[in-house]
Design a protein around this nucleic acid. Sequence first.
DNA 1: ATTGGAGAAG
Length: 583
Amino acid sequence: MQNPDTASTSFTIRYLSQQGKFPEALSLYVQMHGSGLLPNTFVVSSALKASARILCKVGGVMIHGQVKKLGLCKVVFVQTALVDFYSKIGDMEVARNVFDEITERNMVSWNSILAGYVRCGDLAMAQNLFDEMLVRDVVSWNSMVFGYARGNDMEKACTLFREMPERNPASWNAMIAGYVECGKIEMARSFFDAMPRRNNVSYITMISAYSKYGSVESAIELFNEKGEKDLLLYNAMISSFAQNNRAKEALQLFDEMLQSNANIQPDGMTLTSAISACSQLGDLKFGKWIESYMSKSGIKMDDHLATSLIDLYTKCGHIDKAYDLFHSLQKRDLVAYTAMILGCGINGRAKDAIKLFEEMMNANIIPNQVTFTGILTAYNHVGLVKEGYNCFMSLQKYGLVPTVDHYAIVVDLLGRAGQLEDAYELIKSMHVQPHAGVWGALLLACSLHNNVELAEVAAINLFEEMMNANIIPNQVTFTGQLEDAYELIKSMHVQPHAGVWGALLLACSLHNNVELAEVAAKNCFELEADSSGYHSLLANIYASAGRWDDVKRLRGEIEVKGLAKIHGASWMDCDKAGSIEIN
DNA sequence: ATTGGAGAAG
């Protein structure tokens, strides 16, 4: 009896919905309805599912109206789809009304409303409903376990977990996620180890947990242990590297993913993490590469991507490009404002930073610690001492505790203005351990204003901090105390990394100390696989000392080792961007 | 046909 058009359109809508192409399914449904074709119950439930998944409120409500008109209100599939839709958009009142009208509820009807209560955090209602259920399946149990775990009631979650007659990987994953959320990472790991079948979700949850708690090594271990890796697993590991200041490894893995035989295509999230890594390295070339990649692969610019690009462009001094991106944002949130404020601060655009900060306040967005780092950097850059100091003092108004970095900026600000005693008092008043950067800022200020006494205090503390930390601050480059720095490195309690020797090498190049430069360079070469930067630095030192034979020898070494090329990072070469294949 | 579990930017 059905019109052939209706039949084929219905089929397409159901197919699109099953394929996860929800916007497409929904728009086809609207089109179908607009052309006067009557939808059947199958199409209506598919369209409702689509509306629910993309949280299209008007779409679902509109379909609800049509359902009433068409008299499909008694069909359990339609009713259940409606319950699910209202549950997902958080309108539990309407969801409950529809649910109560269902005369023959099935398992899915119950589970839909149950998940709705769990999602909006109404565990009491969820528990009531759960108790009312005569038959429960593993989905019902999982919803309850998930609810308690997310509410940090692990005891309750655990009790339910032990009681449940049947468990699947999702049950275990809910427990793992719950323990992770309340910081009990060891417990999470125990569940992870104990579960019979770990799936990707289990791995991703543990990897991102380790990432948050700084144990990247454990994350790597799990990542390597997993045989087949999919896009989401790569994303978790890449962002884990990017968030723990391991930018090079993030990009290496990104490259490995592109080159892998599994033919995994990155998505917006992959690119977001990769851009963040590039921003840490100040690699602007990549920004351009990313934009060409996006247009080729059809990855659409979203606010997350734009925000990470803003960060990249500002760090590379392209503030106008960053502004363009900022103006293109759908919604300016805390992170976007902070990236832009920090960007203006770094680039000396204090007025802009202050303007953005005010704009942000007017939009009722609460600043956080990083926002303050940005605004303080701006004040520091233009030497607005009073404003900067007041800003620093206003941190508490937002319930924020100043970080060591905030102190370092303000010490620098006060110090440069010659208020050395104020700076010193501020350091003494700190409730966090001042790191070398704080003392370094004071020492630099003392050297600018010829205050020997305070300089000695600062220097002693600076050296002490450096003994604890695996860094040698750039302040040595100003003071030129190269031998002291060298002795210091030799006395370090921890193994100095390439950056430590690199700082000394740079200082040697500024102060023309060839002998020490050779020692520092040798250590850099040994500690860092890609030592091309250090090679050219040493070559420059030889050149300025007129030791052309050594320059020649070093250039030869560079060529032999092929150091100019960075292995396994083909995308770094923008010219090759066009050669990457995208399906 | 309709239900549950995961990853991002400063």
